[in-house]
Design a protein around this nucleic acid. Structure first.
Lengths: 197, 197
DNA sequence: CATAGAGAGTAAGTATTACTCACCTAAGCT
DNA sequence: AGCTTAGGTGAGTAATACTTACTCTCTATG
């Protein structure tokens, strides 16, 4: 069966695109609902027909971006077999996605985490799936003796996710272009081979 | 000469303590200026005598916390000689500080990064100093052949900072208690020895 | 000593902004 | 036709960040 297009009403779509668009140049808090509506070509009231509040709109925009991102990741790792390869692909693909879609990265890494109710949103559920995918690969890697037996899988995931995020912060915040390939190679090198001489 | 106590007026101090106190249970955005003033026992107007706006208040609260944190770190690393040891101490001490002072960690990792003008605040200058301290140690380590020659120092710093932050996020957001010692040992183990078998 | 001035704090606004509510319109469906 | 529902409007409202004009109390100095 073909993926239901969900046929979201045009107003709803326009509102989401409007916010996404405005966030290219402004942070979430300094964008007003009036601005979002005007930019979308609808009235302010319509926002609250489709979204519980301004933050809910943000979460749903994030969710949209994350769906695409996650599908892309899943496709990519299917081509690899060893756990180290899979993790390397995740690292590179994630960094690339963040670099190519700064609005998405901004929302995910900077704008949503401060409000507690984000963590009960649909968007966060997707993040948890992504996150547990990584954990599964790590555990498989330990089982398959590709990853050291004494490595704590949760710690390794933290290091991977943290490294990715921190590597992208400069790009997201200051707009500094990063070289996706060498950045991810450097990170993989440190995490898998170790930094100590 | 003894450190000038700066003798900040009582109202100013009470306002800063009030916000810091309120942030133990609420995120920044859902705390109102009225609440801050009431909790401090002053009027709302006074906030704007000492702080440019609500966010400036937040930055200055962060700055206060960071001063203490940074002094503590500097003291700690003076006791160690090798670069690996120094970095290990930084990792453990930072995680411990974040775990012990969740309000500080919350502000630094979740609440300030989304607004562009944070990055021209005094608080951010302190963060830059902390960050360049780490870079210096890494470069010394490479020079002293304690760290692999082919490791990119900026990448290593990103991995270290990212790992620390991500390790603390669970604690900060969900209040999950973390074991400082084993968490930092796990992270050091991965970063310095590598994860690959 | 008188007084000018500055520093600490107050109280009553105002403009903005997120959010609500009653209403409109058009398109199915029976 | 008549009823329902979904997409959309526009005029409100309460709350909240920030402003402005003011008071009080020291303290220094001519």
């Amino acid at each position: 069966m073909i993926l239901e297009k969900k046929a979201s009403p045009p107003g709803r779509t326009k509102i989401m695109e409007s916010l996404s668009d405005l966030m290219k140049t402004k942070d979430f808090h300094s964008i007003t609902t009036a601005e979002i509506a005007k930019n979308a070509g609808v009235t302010e009231g319509l926002i609250y027909k489709y979204f519980k509040d301004k933050k809910d709109l943000l979460y749903q925009v994030l969710n949209g971006h994350f769906q695409i991102f996650h599908n892309h990741i899943i496709k990519k790792i299917k081509t690899r077999h060893s756990s180290i390869e899979k993790l390397s692909v995740i690292i590179q693909t994630t960094i690339k996605s963040y670099a190519q879609n700064r609005v998405f990265a901004r929302i995910l890494l900077l704008e949503v985490r401060n409000s507690p109710n984000y963590f009960s949103s649909e968007a966060y559920k997707m993040v948890q799936i992504y996150s547990s995918t990584i954990l599964d690969i790590i555990m498989q890697g330990i089982k398959a003796l590709e990853i050291k037996q004494n490595v704590d899988p949760y710690a390794l995931r933290q290091v991977i996710l943290g490294a990715i995020e921190h590597a992208c912060l400069g790009e997201i915040i200051f707009g500094k272009k990063i070289d996706t390939k060498t950045t991810s190679e450097n990170i993989c090198n440190i995490i898998f081979q170790g930094a100590q001489a």
